[in-house]
Design a protein around this nucleic acid. Structure first.
Lengths: 276, 276
DNA sequence: CGTTTGCTTGACAGCATTCAACGTTGGTGG
DNA sequence: CCACCAACGTTGAATGCTGTCAAGCAAACG
């Protein structure tokens, strides 16, 4: 589903790759690097054409000339601190956002207070597509660590994609991919048991991290058990128990949010051969 | 989510409105009207500009001039008999399809044979958006009754939407709406119990039927209990039991696939005040 | 009119939730 | 530097919702 070839990535993110996850007192990786900066919401120039995420993000497949046009459009970045919202349900929709660094969740809330995490977004992924439908955002986007996003003014994106058919097509592909992804989540929620759901979730995360140059076998979860549970349609206790079970069975090593995958094939078999 | 104002609709469909659902030997409405025609897959001229679904479909908001351009694009229809597929997973993606008459389900299949119904589509709704992502369809679309779709060649749609910004915007809105809808289904699958799921499903169906000029309180299900169950993440027995329970409690009258809603407010309360 | 497919209902089992207690971690302030 | 607190995570026991298995019924189709 995602570009399978690893790409070069920022030093800042690379440092995040926790070579010492299973050392002794591993410092918590949240907010790595950007925490001490006083800046909070700011605009400064940045170029898609020189961004090392361009092979994962909106610019995929564009020529240099086309990239230069996109540079004019994506004129600002915004920083979002851990726990803060990039946008809320009901906010007027004006821009899409491309995650540059950091990690987000999106969630929708029902009238009765229940909420559902609908996705986790990492570098190169787009946020805000839900807003096009009604000109208002239909979910909350919350940063799970200090993050930066590129601001993509939507009306300008529409203008430019009328000029640049490659951009138009790429944008449509991204929306379509989101639809396909959502259908995969429906399959997970509608027909898998807890173990299968968690295994599928971990495999999806590691695959996406791997495509960004990170290890395919070690990861640091940026979200709580409750957030994982909400995404997977499980209670946090069930998530915790399933992690413990995977550890007992030798699939994983689990130390709070530090996960090491010991038997990827085993996890994969859990998902694919569910009824055997 | 959908256009709430009823619109005029074809006589053929109107006849389908089952005024005698609760009479004696109501004939099964599947295949109404088009069943005896020998035609199976055909191309013939049809105009969006004179289609009575234009206020629900792709042409929403377009001027007469713009509609005429769209007429050139949507040049053929296709008939799909009950039980047959409009497209299968893996088929090359070339066109989107707008349901003109009839009713479809989409489903995805996992490697182990499990499948998940990802949606039910009725008149005015678009099929095939999943295919843009990889140039191949990512699900099966199956007609649940004899149906007609308008064929919308995708590359031509991209061409035209570069010329007609209103069309471009409308198309983006439709894709975005699909994403928002999918997130709603995730909420349903991830956090609702069987009764709430079925109530939400029925309310959604009646709302969409109402927007098409049908009764908001009586409907004929076009899908089996098993298909409803797949969509809602439940087993068919649970769906059946829940229907029976709703009938006992006075929310519904259920006669196989004929449903009459006796207490819509009650159903709505079930969904909204889930934990009280 | 028989067969097939779909629907209903019952009994029982199992998986996930609920409720509760305890442990761990990181941050704050004395 | 240490104590305390709040948030997060783990684990146990019991409940209950939904799934499973099975039987019988109803409707549609040839």
């Amino acid at each position: 589903m995602l570009n399978p070839t690893p790409i070069s990535i920022e030093p800042q993110q690379r440092a995040d790759r926790n070579p010492c996850v299973h050392g002794g007192t591993a410092s918590h990786p949240d907010g790595c690097g950007s925490q001490s900066r006083p800046m909070r919401l700011d605009s400064f120039k940045v170029a898609c054409s020189s961004c090392n995420l361009r092979e994962l993000c909106l610019p995929v497949g564009l020529t240099q000339t086309q990239l230069n046009h996109l540079d004019d459009l994506v004129a600002s970045r915004r920083m979002v601190k851990r726990g803060e919202a990039l946008f809320h349900t009901g906010d007027p929709f004006r821009s899409l956002y491309a995650v540059r660094t950091g990690f987000f969740k999106t969630r929708i809330s029902a009238e009765d207070g229940r909420d559902q995490v609908t996705g986790f977004q990492m570098a190169g992924e787009l946020l805000g597509l839900d807003g096009i439908s009604t000109d208002r955002h239909a979910c909350d986007a919350i940063a799970l660590e200090d993050s930066q996003v590129c601001v993509i003014p939507y009306s300008q994106l529409e203008d430019l994609s009328r000029e640049v058919s490659d951009l138009q097509h790429q944008f449509h592909k991204i929306m379509s991919r989101e639809i396909v992804r959502d259908h995969g989540v429906m399959l997970l929620l509608g027909s898998m048991r807890a173990e299968e759901r968690l295994a599928a979730f971990l495999l999806n995360l590691t695959q996406r991290l791997h495509a960004r140059g990170f290890s395919a076998s070690a990861l640091v979860l940026r979200m709580t058990r409750e957030e994982i549970g909400s995404y997977l349609g499980l209670k946090l206790e069930t998530v915790s128990r399933t992690f413990s079970k995977f550890q007992e069975e030798g699939f994983l090593e689990v130390k709070q949010r530090d996960i090491r995958i010991m038997d990827e094939a085993g996890l994969r078999a859990l998902v694919n051969n569910a009824r055997c």
